[in-house]
């Protein structure tokens, strides 16, 4: 039976591993290669590495670092951050990465999704959708690189991305990021019930129960950051991953 994928999502900033809270206040949590080695030993389902400094600072991907990640990663690896051309994606795939995650380059124009999907297949393109409440409490599409909410409706953005060939949707609730306070289930249901491609829910995981709730709400997979790198009430840095048996018991199978 197909298992629900539980994906550690690691944030890079200038070569170091960080964790944010509501997309702000990045706290240094360690060396990324060391973290990937630990996650490898723990046999995680999949790994996502997002360079949050790349697009924001107008830099491209750090290929040397990505190559080292891929060499350590014996599970599927998704990389996001600073990808704005087919050539960059090609180079990343050639280093041993399975999937690229796109946001900044495709917020206005989905043609890069189409270029990559038609060459490398839809399964290799993940689109990142960040959703943040505005001052009226309305859920808006958010641009992580400019740190601004956008006028464009997030459902419209997802729709054009899926039509262009995106194979997975990484749906992130900015308001829940790093809070470990539970996921935005309403948002997950809204998106997963509208689109047929797999949805990776992210933002707010504080327990395996939160993951289960997201799956019940329609998520195909769950990504989390703080849950895997912080431990205890004082958020001490400690890399953990639940035992396979515990995940299986709580989450069961999908079919």
């Amino acid at each position: 039976m197909l298992k629900t994928r539980i994906i550690p999502s690691l944030l890079l900033s200038d070569g170091g591993l960080v964790k944010t809270c509501r997309f702000s206040d990045p706290k240094y949590v360690g060396d990324p290669i060391n973290a990937i080695r630990i996650f490898n030993e723990k046999e995680v389902d999949e790994l996502m590495v997002l360079d949050i400094s790349a697009s924001h600072k107008g830099k491209g991907p750090d290929y040397g670092l990505i190559e080292r990640f891929a060499g350590e990663c014996f599970m599927p690896l998704c990389y996001g951050g600073g990808i704005s051309s087919l050539e960059q994606a090609r180079r990343i795939f050639s280093l041993g990465v399975e999937k690229v995650c796109l946001q900044t380059a495709v917020l206005g124009d989905p043609s890069l999704i189409e270029d990559i999907a038609s060459r490398y297949g839809s399964q290799s393109v993940v689109i990142s959708v960040d959703v943040k409440k505005n001052w009226l409490g309305r859920k808006c599409l958010y641009s992580a690189s400019t740190k601004k909410t956008l006028k464009r409706l997030f459902m419209d953005y997802v729709s054009s991305a899926v039509e262009a060939g995106a194979g997975e949707i990484l749906l992130n609730s900015v308001d829940r990021d790093g809070t470990m306070s539970g996921m935005d289930l309403e948002l997950i249901t809204q998106v997963s019930s509208t689109f047929s491609v797999p949805l990776i829910a992210s933002g707010g995981v504080g327990s395996i129960k939160d993951m289960k709730d997201a799956v019940d709400a329609g998520a195909s997979a769950v990504a989390a950051g703080a849950f895997f790198v912080f431990h205890g009430p004082h958020r001490a840095v400690l890399i953990t991953y639940p035992k396979y048996e515990d995940l299986e018991k709580e989450l069961g199978a999908m079919d």
Partner: peptide, 13 residues
């Protein structure tokens, strides 16, 4: 069944 998404993606026994 709409729950059975295609591609079949993930870990299976």
């Amino acid at each position: 069944d709409p729950k059975l998404k295609v591609p079949h993606m993930g870990w299976n026994t």
